[in-house]
Design a protein around this nucleic acid. Structure first.
Lengths: 151, 151
DNA sequence: TTATATGCAAAAGCTTTGCATGGGT
DNA sequence: ACCCATGCAAAGCTTTTGCATATAA
C-alpha cells in the first residue's frame, strides 16, 4: 500500500538532515534507540505509523525498547519533526513532518484503510480561516471519512 | 466559555427529537442511564465533552455509571448522532451532530483552549476534495493548532 | 568524567467486557 | 414474560514513569 512504502530519497534525506541538526541543537545525543527510531522513520515514516509498528520495524536485534520508542517519539514531536494523529482505536500514529510538503488523510469507512492526499485549494482555505480567526498557525490536520463512490 | 455553554433551544430540541426517533427505530429502550446521557448531551453537548465530563454533568443521583455512559456514547455514535474527536491526551470527546450546522476546532497551543469555528469556504473546499478523490463523504474533521496573533 | 540514553518492569489512565440484577414494553 | 438496560468490578490496552545500568562526548 502506498501509505507504508518507503519515502523517496529526497524527502528522506532532507528530513534526516533536519532531524539530525535539530536534535544536535537541542543537546540530544546519538544513542542506539534514538538513532534506530529516527532512521526507521526517515525510511518508512512517510505516513502514519504507530509506536508498535515502529518498534517492529526497527532492525531486529538493533534494540529499541517500548519505553525508548515512546520517548523518542515525544522528543521528535516536541522538536516539530513529527506530525501526530490520534486514531479512534486509541492509538497515536506519527509521520515525518516534511517542511516542503504535507498531506492529509482519507479513511475508507468500509475497510478502515487510510490514504494520504494533498490539495492546494484546501490549504489556502485553511490559511484564510486561520487568518480570519487571528491565529498564527502552527499545524493543522484534516481527516475525511467516507466510502469509495461506486458509479 | 462558549464551547461548554448550553445549546440554544432550537439545536437542542432538533437533536433531541432526531435522537429519540433514531433510537426508537433502532429498537433501543429508554432506560435511566441512556435517557440521562441523551438529555445531558442535548443540553450541554454542543462542543466536545469527554465521557468523564458527561458523567459528572448527569444530575447527581440520577445515576449513569461509567460503563453505561461509554455504552450510550458508542450507540449514539453508531447512529450518527455524535461527532467524535480523539485528543492528544488519550481522551475521546463527543459533541452532538447537528445535521444543519457543524463546526471545527481551533486549539490554542499556549493555553490548550479549544474553540469551535465555522467557515463556508472551507466546507466547499472539502466537498471539492472529496469529489475529486471519488469519496462519498460521511464525515470530516479539521483541527487547527496555533497561537493567538499578537499585533 | 559526567550528564544523557536505554531497558525492564511497574504504574497510570481511559475504555471495554462479563455477569448478575433491575426495568421497559 | 421477554428482552433490553444498568452497574459493579474485573480486565484490556496503550502510554508513561521509576530506577539501575550502560554510554556518548
Amino acid at each position: 500500500m502506498a501509505a507504508r512504502s518507503p519515502a523517496d530519497g529526497a524527502v528522506r534525506d532532507r528530513w534526516l538532515e533536519l532531524a539530525t541538526r535539530r536534535m544536535t541543537a537541542a543537546g540530544l545525543r546519538a544513542g542506539a534507540a534514538r538513532t534506530a527510531v529516527v532512521e526507521t522513520l526517515a525510511r518508512e515514516g512517510q505516513c502514519l505509523l504507530s509506536a508498535a509498528e515502529i518498534t517492529s520495524l526497527l532492525r531486529p536485534g538493533g534494540g529499541g525498547s517500548t519505553a525508548s520508542v515512546y520517548r523518542v517519539l515525544m522528543e521528535l514531536s516536541d522538536l516539530g519533526l513529527l506530525r501526530r494523529l490520534d486514531g479512534r482505536d486509541g492509538v497515536a500514529r506519527f509521520e515525518i513532518a516534511d517542511p516542503e510538503h504535507h498531506h492529509h488523510h482519507v479513511v475508507d469507512e468500509r475497510t478502515g484503510e487510510v490514504r494520504p492526499f494533498t490539495d492546494d485549494d484546501l490549504e489556502r482555505s485553511i490559511e484564510r480561516v486561520a487568518d480570519r480567526l487571528g491565529i498564527e498557525l502552527r499545524s493543522h490536520e484534516v481527516v475525511l471519512r467516507g466510502v469509495r463512490r461506486e458509479a
